[in-house]
Write a protein that binds this DNA or RNA. Structure first.
Length: 132
DNA sequence: GAATTGACGGGGC
DNA sequence: AGCCCCGCCAATT
């Protein structure tokens, strides 16, 4: 049997623990975090969890390193992009983070297993070569 | 209780 | 890259 929390609040602490693993200069998507947390966690729940961070907790949880799948910033009025730029993350003209250079590859398999989380599946290398 | 909205995402075109 | 449709979970109207 799998214990999947019915109350999304039950995911919050696990979500914060995962977010704390993302190093400066790197970014992860809401979906990435949800996958690592596992047990039915959802990208939207991750968004709710980060939105529920108090000012105190936001000082230890790097919420700014979580962005959407397009590399765009989903928040407004929090200076998220500026903070990321200060950490070394680069953006293109359209305001999208350069995921190819800064996308976090997930926790180490050892860490994930030690803490009861799910490692991030290997992302297929994006071939940009114009064959023929 | 349907429709809508919100710090979302995958797949198809 | 962009747009659309649909699934997802929860809160609000």
């Amino acid at each position: 049997m799998s214990t999947q929390p019915r109350d999304e609040h039950e995911y919050y602490e696990r979500i914060y623990t995962v977010v704390e693993q993302v190093p400066p200069g790197k970014v992860a998507t809401y979906g990435d975090v949800a996958t690592i947390v596992g047990d039915g966690c959802d990208a939207r729940i991750v968004g709710h969890a980060l939105g529920a961070l108090g000012a105190r907790r936001a000082e230890t949880v790097p919420w700014q390193r979580i962005i959407n799948r397009t590399g765009g910033i989903s928040t407004s009025g929090h200076g998220q992009r500026e903070i990321l730029q200060a950490e070394g993350v680069t953006f293109d003209e359209k305001g999208h983070a350069r995921m190819d250079a800064h996308h976090w590859s997930g926790p180490t398999e050892a860490w994930a297993r030690a803490h009861g989380f799910q490692p991030l599946p290997q992302r297929p290398p994006q071939a940009q070569l114009t064959l023929f």
